[in-house]
C-alpha cells in the first residue's frame, strides 16, 4: 500500500512537470500549426541557464525563473521573426525539418559549450516531508505547486486578457481573426515568444530534480507530442490530465515492472502515443488541428 501511495505521489509530481512542460508545445502547434521538434531543446536551454546561475552565482534554482522567463521570451521573439515566420504557411514537412535542424544545432552547441557530462543543480529545499510511510521531497512538491501556478496563470491570461483572447481567436480561425482587426503577425510573434519562455521556465523547474545534459531534449519532445495527442489541442485542463496520466504511467511502470522498469518510461509514453493516435486521433479531451497540408 505504501509503495502504491509513494508511486502515486511521484507520478503526480512528475505529471505536474510534464503538464507545464508541454504547454508551450501545444500552444505553438495549436495557434501556428507548427510542430516544434526543438521543443525539448528549449527545456534543456532553460535548465542549463538555471544551472549556470546556480553554479556561478549561487542562485536558488526557482529564483532563476526571473531571468529565464524574460531572456527566453526575447529569444523566442527573435527566433520567430528570423526563422519560424518563414515556415508557418508551408507544408508540415518543412516545419518538421526546420525545427529538427534547429534541435540538432541547439543540442550540439550546448554539448560543445558544456560537454555531455550530466549536471545537477543544488537547492536548499533538499529535505523531505514524511506523511505516514511516504516521503515527499520538498523540491518536488515546490515544482508541483509552481507548475500548477504557472498553468493557472496562463489559463487566466488566455481567458481574460485582450492579448490572450486574440491568441485564442487566431488559433480558432485565422481569417476571421484577421478580419476583425487582429494583427496576426504580431500575435504569432508574441505567442511563440510566450511559448518558448514557458518551455524554458519548465526547464528551470526540472533542474533541481533531474540531471541536465545536452541530449535530454528529444525524449521530452516526444513526450510533449504524446501528451498533446492525448489531450487534444486547445485545452489546458486536458493538458494537465494528459501530463498526470503520462507521469503516473511512467512511475508505475518503473515501480512495478521488475528489474528493467526505469528505462521503459519512454517506451510506455510511446506505446500510449500510438494507441491514442490510432484509436482516437482527435485526442482524448479535445480536437486536434489537422496536421496535413
Amino acid at each position: 500500500m505504501n509503495q502504491f501511495l509513494q508511486a502515486s505521489v511521484n507520478g503526480i509530481t512528475l505529471g505536474g512537470f510534464y503538464a507545464v512542460m508541454v504547454l508551450g508545445f501545444a500552444i505553438i502547434w495549436g495557434v501556428m500549426g507548427v510542430i516544434n521538434l526543438a521543443h525539448g531543446e528549449f527545456v534543456m536551454v532553460g535548465a542549463y541557464l538555471t544551472w549556470f546561475l546556480n553554479k556561478q552565482y549561487g542562485w536558488e534554482p526557482f529564483l532563476a525563473l526571473l531571468v529565464v522567463f524574460p531572456v527566453m521570451f526575447v529569444m523566442g521573439y527573435l527566433l520567430q521573426k528570423i526563422l519560424i515566420n518563414r515556415i508557418i504557411d508551408r507544408s508540415y514537412l518543412i516545419s518538421l525539418l526546420v525545427t529538427f535542424g534547429l534541435s540538432i544545432i541547439i543540442s550540439n552547441s550546448f554539448k560543445l559549450m558544456f560537454s555531455a557530462t550530466p549536471r545537477t543543480v543544488d537547492t536548499v529545499l533538499s529535505s523531505f516531508w514524511r506523511v505516514g510511510g511516504i516521503t515527499i521531497p520538498m523540491a518536488k512538491s515546490v515544482v508541483l505547486i509552481m507548475s500548477l501556478l504557472m498553468m493557472a496563470g496562463l489559463y487566466l491570461f488566455l481567458q481574460h486578457t485582450r492579448r490572450g483572447k486574440s491568441i485564442r481567436a487566431a488559433a480558432q480561425n485565422r481569417e476571421a481573426a484577421r478580419i476583425v482587426g487582429i494583427e496576426i503577425a504580431a500575435v504569432y510573434a508574441f505567442t511563440f515568444a510566450l511559448a518558448i519562455a514557458f518551455t524554458s521556465a519548465s526547464g528551470t523547474l526540472i533542474s533541481p530534480i533531474q540531471p541536465i545534459f545536452p541530449f535530454m531534449g528529444p525524449a521530452l519532445t516526444l513526450k510533449a507530442f504524446a501528451i498533446t495527442a492525448i489531450a487534444g489541442l486547445g485545452s489546458i485542463p486536458g493538458v494537465l490530465l494528459g501530463g498526470l496520466l503520462l507521469g503516473l504511467i511512467e512511475v508505475f511502470v518503473a515501480t512495478y515492472v521488475p528489474g528493467i522498469g526505469t528505462n521503459l518510461g519512454v517506451v510506455a509514453s510511446y506505446v500510449l502515443l500510438v494507441v491514442v493516435l490510432v484509436v482516437r486521433p482527435q485526442g482524448l479531451f479535445g480536437s486536434l488541428r489537422p496536421a496535413e497540408g
Partner: peptide, 28 residues
C-alpha cells in the same frame, strides 16, 4: 499497420517515437 493509418505529421512523429523506443528496448 498501425502507424500508416496516421496522416501527415502524426506518422512522422510516431515513427520518431518508434525509433527512440526500440533503442531503449534494445538497451533493456
Amino acid at each position: 499497420s498501425a502507424t500508416l493509418r496516421l496522416r501527415g505529421a502524426y506518422f512522422s512523429i510516431a515513427m520518431l517515437g518508434a525509433f527512440v523506443a526500440v533503442r531503449e528496448i534494445i538497451r533493456v
